[in-house]
Write a protein that binds this DNA or RNA. Structure first.
Length: 856
RNA sequence: GCCGGUGUGUUGGAAUUGGUAGACGAGGCGGACUCAAAAUCCGUUGUUAGCGAUAACGUGUGGGUUCGAGUCCCACCACCGGCACCA
């Protein structure tokens, strides 16, 4: 009986598919469990080894949950709108729909090849009109709630391609494809008011079972800060509003800065004597590419122009302060204007130093002539600050807020870094936005009855020269009638971003074929929310936040019963590859040759860095085509089988951390499965457990179950390997194997089913292994009657002794002192103290007899 | 700069959360089987000294707390990830 994995895997995959073994049943009386993985973008390259890591992990969790009696929903689908497909279509003149269909077919085959227990009847495809109908429907609800609005926003414009780029296509300020600088261009765009939900998106994290780093990253991204909004009177008559987190430093404000885009700049034109100079600065700032802006930020070199002819009044001390414009003040954060407090803000200090502005110390302790003084805590003492002198910063902040509110020149307020979601893309391969622009009525939503608004076929998928979506050229589609007045009107030609379809897909899985509703009442009532969602850290701030936002909106309008979509969120580490250019990854021969050629190992390494860049210093790097270190799962399955790939990918390291792929280590896992397979011929017919294995079996049941729940798959597998080693050492029975197969079933489902069948368990139980109940452990069988106790003398391990389990301290100490090795240590010493840790360890504290006398 | 994380044998990684460091793999070495090789099975494998029992050292560095520290505290170094002129 040979382990012919290729045939075995195919056989069971076919059977599972035909029998719909893993179908979830809406309304089933068993407790439900909804496990979710991020659905893939079906790229032309096919599945990458990165995909199976989270998929196998959740597959194991879900398979175990099924065995534990849950009705499990474990779905998969395809997030198929997006740029790579569109770019491929542009290049090869193939309709993106055809490319998408091909890619989905390929992905489906690959996913099935790996034996994931997805419910294949619930597959969703975001590009399917029956799906995006509901994506559009949600947009209409957002619009109705006033959460979608049109605004003129800067977009990324590639100066060479002459087209609009998504943020993801801009890498370090240049176009990802052609490398030309990217500048900002104003464009009217649909925006979603995610900022209105900022506070709830922070607050509701408290009740969720998300791993801590996800919560922290989301909170940082939303970037809440509390402070005050203050009003400065200006000689122009307008009051300048600023936001500050440090109202206590108001007495130290010696100037003000507006962002170049601030509305007052233009408004005050007649008053500004040096307006030409100001205008030139504003123009230059607008022309600056993102790249130049970030460069400047790094250099900390501040630029700016004083508005000659206008001044402001510091409300704290009534003094006149000059007003500047500078691009270090962002138009998009706070009010687009700041008060300059050079004594206690490094950027302000840099600016004030450059422009020769006064620097006032208002918090004692530093030397503001040398640098800004910033305390991490709020214990600093106020000076030069009128009525708050002598207070700590902690006391001064509320005191100042009280004062400005009394004077009616400011209020306590909160600001967020989070900005509204730019929802328009000037692209073809996305969901059409169901809005019509009527010259009489303005923007009018399409009636829900007209959904889905189908994406029309176009001849050319390239964006137009002026940055319009290719849809703009489809005049037959664009020109329509106003749903409101019936007059001639035009459709929105921008499409939705890729994040749209993935913001609610988990709901559609609950009821994927419903034509009447996004998700049926019964289905949502039964499945409720996702119990466990695993995905990459790279989606923490965009996808995860966007989908939480949409879910809250759907909750507010009564479509879903929970305010949060996912109860639990975990995250996996990336799979990295070995850097073929790194010295340590070269073969001994290659290393020797290089050392010979360049004289020493150090100069050989230096040569590699010169040749391949700094990355050559890093032996473990991201997989990339250019390095040629990409591992294709197909090849691994071909050579070792899907079960081996699954076990290896779970064994290679801590699931939450990045881990390098090492092809050489895969065979260790193959060997493990072979050893399990070979046990079938070695085992005796008894269904009883081998007495010598009994304890290990029960301990392993406990360990594997706990480790799966904690996503410590690597140690779960190690425990099973140990058990197999025990079986080899002690011999094993069919009964021993029966238990092992059940534990291994979530990890290596194909091989387990085959053995299960061949050993006659399938016939005997009338079930596949994956349909069996998860084994239970017996605490009593895990009790050891004798314990090996570590004996330390003065904290150093000297020996071990065996004592009865749970015996009292005196027995342990007596046994320890009787030990030969300990006796040696005790010569000339007196036992002054002993510490016993039950069933584990005893530490004997000895002192020389002489010294003991001296002590007295 | 800010936030988060990591640092353990030749190597991927374990360590019940303060209690026998190196589980389980990979690689190496030795043996069995074989005409031979592969596969398989059985040993062995942190470093140094010693024939040996054993001893000393050992979890990035330096201090500290403790009967006892990979684990806790302080300072530092290196690397990884995220954000970044956010007022």
């Amino acid at each position: 009986m040979n382990y012919e994995f290729a045939a075995i895997e195919k056989k069971w995959q076919k059977k599972w598919l035909e029998q719909k073994t893993y179908a979830a049943v809406t309304g089933d009386p068993r407790p439900k469990f909804y496990g979710l993985v991020e659905f893939p973008y079906p790229s032309g390259a096919g599945l990458h080894v990165g995909h199976p890591r989270p998929y196998t992990a959740m597959d194991i969790v879900c398979r175990k949950k099924r065995m534990q009696g849950y009705n499990v929903l474990f779905p998969i689908g395809f997030d198929a709108f997006g740029l790579p497909t569109e770019n491929y279509a542009i290049k090869n003149h193939i309709h993106p729909r055809i490319v998408t269909e091909q890619n989905i077919k390929h992905f489906t085959e690959q996913l099935q090849m790996l034996g994931f227990s997805f419910d294949w009847d619930r597959v969703v495809d975001t590009t399917d009109p029956s799906y995006y109908k509901w994506t559009q429907w949600i947009f209409l609800q957002l619009y109705k709630k006033g959460l979608a609005y049109k605004a003129t926003m800067p977009v990324n414009w590639c100066t060479s391609c002459k087209c609009v780029l998504a943020n993801e296509e801009v890498v370090e300020g240049v176009c990802e494809r052609c490398g030309a600088p990217v500048v900002r261009k104003e464009k009217s765009q649909w925006m979603l008011k995610i900022t209105e939900y900022a506070q709830r998106l922070i607050d509701d994290l408290d009740d969720l079972d998300y791993i801590e780093r996800v919560k922290i990253q989301q909170k940082n991204w939303i970037g809440r800060s509390t402070g005050a909004q203050l009003r400065f009177q200006s000689s122009a008559g307008d009051a300048i509003e600023v936001f500050t987190t440090r109202p206590d430093t108001l007495f130290g404000c010696t100037y003000m800065v507006l962002s170049p885009e601030h509305a007052f700049v233009k408004k005050w034109e007649p008053l500004i004597k040096n307006y030409a100079e100001v205008q030139a600065y504003v123009d230059a700032a607008a022309r600056k590419s993102d790249f130049e802006r970030t460069e400047l930020a790094a250099n900390k070199e501040k630029t700016g122009v004083r508005l000659d002819g206008v001044v402001a009044i510091n409300p704290a001390n009534g003094e006149e302060v000059p007003i500047f414009i500078s691009d270090y003040v962002l138009a998009t954060y706070g009010t687009g204007a700041v008060m300059g407090v050079p004594g206690h803000d490094q950027r302000d200090w840099d600016f004030a130093t450059k422009f020769g502005l006064p620097i006032i110390e208002v918090v004692k302790g530093g030397d503001v002539t040398k640098e800004a003084f910033i305390l991490k805590d709020d214990t600093g003492i106020m000076v030069n600050s009128g009525f708050i002198n002598g207070m700590t910063v902690k006391q001064a902040i509320p005191a100042m807020i009280d004062w400005v509110e009394q004077q009616n020149i400011g209020v306590k307020t909160v600001n967020y870094k989070l900005r509204d979601w730019v929802f328009s893309r000037q692209r073809y391969w996305g969901e059409p936005i169901p809005m019509v622009n009527c010259p009489k009525c303005g923007w009018v939503p399409l009636p829900e009855s007209e959904l889905p608004l189908l994406l029309p076929d176009v001849e050319n998928y390239e964006p137009t020269d002026n940055g319009e979506s290719p849809l703009a050229k489809m005049t037959g589609w664009v020109n329509t009638t106003c749903p409101h007045c019936g007059g001639p009107a035009q459709r929105e030609t921008d499409t939705m971003p890729q994040w749209a379809g993935s913001s609610w897909y988990f709901l559609r899985y609950m009821d994927p074929h419903n034509d009447e509703e996004l998700v049926g009442r019964d289905a949502i009532k039964y499945w409720h929310q996702v119990d466990w969602y695993n995905g990459g850290m790279e989606h923490t701030t965009l996808h995860l936040l966007y989908s939480r936002f949409w879910h809250k909106v759907l909750f507010d309008i009564g479509v879903v019963p929970t305010a949060e979509p996912y109860q639990k969120r975990t995250s996996h580490g990336m799979i990295l590859g070995l850097n073929p250019h790194s010295f340590v990854n070269l073969s001994e021969q290659e290393q020797a040759e290089l050392v010979k050629k360049y004289g020493s190992e150090d100069s050989a390494k230096r040569h590699l860095v010169e040749q391949f860049g700094e990355m050559a210093d890093h032996p473990i790097v991201k997989m990339s085509k250019s390095l040629g270190n990409v591992v294709n799962p197909d090849d691994v399955v071909q050579e070792f089988g899907a079960d081996t790939l699954r076990v290896y990918i779970m064994f290679l390291g801590d699931f939450e951390k990045a881990a390098p792929w090492q092809t050489s280590a895969v065979k260790g896992c193959k060997r493990f499965l072979d050893r399990v397979w070979n046990l079938a011929e070695r085992c005796s017919d008894s269904m009883e457990h081998t007495p010598a294995n009994e304890m290990s079996i029960h301990k392993t049941i406990k360990k594997v179950a706990e480790d799966i729940d904690a996503m410590k798959f690597n140690t779960a597998i190690a425990a099973m390997m140990s058990l197999v080693n025990d079986y080899y050492a002690n011999g094993c029975t069919k009964g021993d194997l029966h238990t092992l197969l059940l534990l291994l079933s979530p990890f290596a489902p194909h091989m387990v089913e085959e053995l299960w069948e061949q050993l006659g368990f399938a016939a005997r139980e009338g079930k596949m292994a994956c349909e069996m109940a998860w084994p239970v452990f017996d605490e009593n069988k895990m009790v050891e009657h004798e314990k090996e106790i570590a004996v330390q003398v003065n904290g150093k391990l000297r020996s071990t002794v065996k004592v009865p389990a749970d015996c009292d301290d005196e027995t342990v100490i007596a046994a320890a002192c009787a030990d030969e090795k300990v006796q040696k240590q005790m010569q000339g010493m007196t036992l002054v103290k002993s510490i016993v840790v039950k069933n584990k360890l005893v530490n004997l504290i000895l002192k020389p007899e002489k010294q003991l006398h001296l002590d007295k």
